[in-house]
Design a protein around this nucleic acid. Structure first.
Lengths: 224, 224
DNA sequence: TCATAGTAAAAAATCGATTTTTCTAGCATA
DNA sequence: TATGCTAGAAAAATCGATTTTTTACTATGA
C-alpha cells in the first residue's frame, strides 16, 4: 500500500513523542510559555505538528519530570514561578553541585580533563554560531554536565540536571540574565583551571558562587 | 444517547491513566514483574483493563519517574536490579533523609507531632488489616513521609520519595525482607520519641542506621 | 557452515473519531 | 440582586483502527 521509504529515514530513528518532548522541554525552559498558563492541547498539536497520542505522551512525561502540572481532568498547566520554590531549587543546586564537584575532582581522569577542555572550548566559541543565544545555553548546559560527570553517582547527576532545568526556567525569564554572561564565562574558565589542578576547596567555593550569581539574577523573575 | 450516570461517579473523579499509573507503580515496587523483563503492552491492556492511550500515558510517566526504561522504538522494560545502583540509591537516601530529618525536627510544630503519632499508630496496627503485608508497606511509606514532611524543602522531599520507591524495589525483592520487620518497628518507635523530644543528633544517627538495616537486606536482591 | 537477504508475523507508535467531563452563559427563581 | 439550574459549546480523555518498525524465520548462495 505505502511506498517504501528511502533508507535515509534510518537516520532519525527517534519517535514522534520523543521529538515533541524535546521541543516542548526546550520551549518551556526557554520561557516560550507564560508561567501559570493553561496549555491548549489542540493548539499545541498544530504548533508542533504531531498527533494527539505522541503529544499527550510527551506532556505526561514532562509532568512527571516537573516541568508541567497536571490537573485532574482539566489538562496541563505551566507551573507558576514562585520565589519560595526558586529559593528551594537554588539551595539544593548549591548543595548538590558542591558535593558532586568535589567527587568529580577526586575521581575524574585524563580522558575527562580532555573532554572538559573540549566542552569549555565549545562554550567559548558559542557566540560565533547562528542563533548564538540559544547555542550558548546549550553549550553551557553541556559544560556543567561534563564538569560533574565523573562524580560517581548517577542519581545525584539526575537530580542536579532536573534542578538545573527548573532553575533555568527562572533564570531565563529574568530580564537582565544576559548581562551577567561575561561574569559567568570568567568563572567557567576558573572552574576549568581548578578542575585540572584538583583545587577542591577553591572549586567548592567557586561553584557555589557561580550558582549564587545566577540565582541573584533569577530572583527578579518571580512576582511573589 | 447515554444514560446519565448516578452522582456516585463523582467520588472517583480520577482519570483512567492515573489509575493505571498508580496500579503499575505499586506492582513495579512490589516486584510483580521480573527485573529486566520487557513489558508486553497488549497483555498489560488486559491485565489492567484499560485502553491503549491511558496505558501508554501511564508508562511514559513511569519512565520519566525512573521506574521503567524506555527503549527507542521497542517499548518499555523493567530496569534490572544492579548492585552499583542500589549502593548509589542507599547512599543518597541516607544523606538526604538525615538532612531532612534534622530540618523537620527543627521546624515541625505541634500539629505535626500529632499527625506523626497518628501515622505511627496506624503503622503499629497494620497487621490487623486484611492483606497485612501490603498494608504495612503502605503505612510504612506514609510514616516516613510524615516524619520528614516539615523539613521545608519540597524538592528534597520529592527526591527522597523517588529514591524511597527505587530502594523498595530492591528491598521487597530480597528474600529475607520480612524478617527484619520487628527490628524496623522498634526503630520507628524510637524515631517518634526522638522526634517529639527533638533529639537531633540521635535522630540523625538512628535514621541512618534505619536505612542501613534495610540496605543490608536489600543487597541480596541483586545478582551483580 | 556461515552470512545474508527476503518475508511474514508481532509489536510499537500513531492517527482519526467518539465519549466523557468541564466550562460558559442564559434563564428562571427566590 | 443573588443563587441555582440547564443546555450548548469547548476541552480532555479514551477508544478502535491503521501505519510503521522491529523481530523471527526461511531460503539462498558463498
Amino acid at each position: 500500500m505505502s511506498v517504501r521509504q528511502a533508507p535515509a529515514t534510518a537516520l532519525d530513528a527517534t519517535t514522534a513523542a520523543s521529538q515533541v518532548y524535546a521541543a516542548l522541554k526546550r520551549d518551556l525552559i526557554r520561557g516560550r510559555f507564560v508561567a501559570g498558563e493553561k496549555l491548549a492541547i489542540n493548539h499545541l498539536k498544530e504548533t508542533y505538528a504531531v498527533g494527539l497520542s505522541p503529544l499527550r505522551e510527551a506532556l505526561n512525561r514532562l509532568a512527571a519530570y516537573g516541568l508541567l502540572a497536571q490537573e485532574n481532568q482539566r489538562g496541563f498547566r505551566v507551573p507558576a514561578l514562585k520565589r519560595r520554590e526558586l529559593d528551594d531549587i537554588a539551595g539544593l543546586r548549591q548543595q548538590f553541585e558542591v558535593q558532586a564537584l568535589e567527587a568529580a575532582l577526586r575521581q575524574g581522569d585524563a580522558q575527562w580533563e580532555a573532554e572538559l577542555l573540549a566542552a569549555f572550548h565549545r562554550l567559548k566559541r558559542a557566540d560565533e554560531q547562528p542563533d548564538a543565544l540559544e547555542h550558548w545555553e546549550q553549550m553551557h548546559l553541556q559544560f556543567h554536565r561534563r564538569l560533574l560527570e565523573p562524580c560517581g553517582s548517577a542519581w545525584l547527576l539526575r537530580f542536579i540536571e532536573q534542578l538545573h532545568d527548573q532553575f533555568d526556567r527562572y533564570r531565563r525569564m529574568a530580564p537582565a540574565h544576559q548581562d551577567i554572561r561575561a561574569q559567568l564565562d570568567v568563572q567557567h574558565a576558573e572552574l576549568v583551571e581548578l578542575a585540572l589542578a584538583r583545587g577542591i576547596a577553591e572549586a567548592r567555593e567557586l561553584i557555589h558562587a557561580h550558582i549564587q550569581l545566577s540565582y541573584d539574577v533569577a530572583k527578579s523573575a518571580c512576582s511573589e
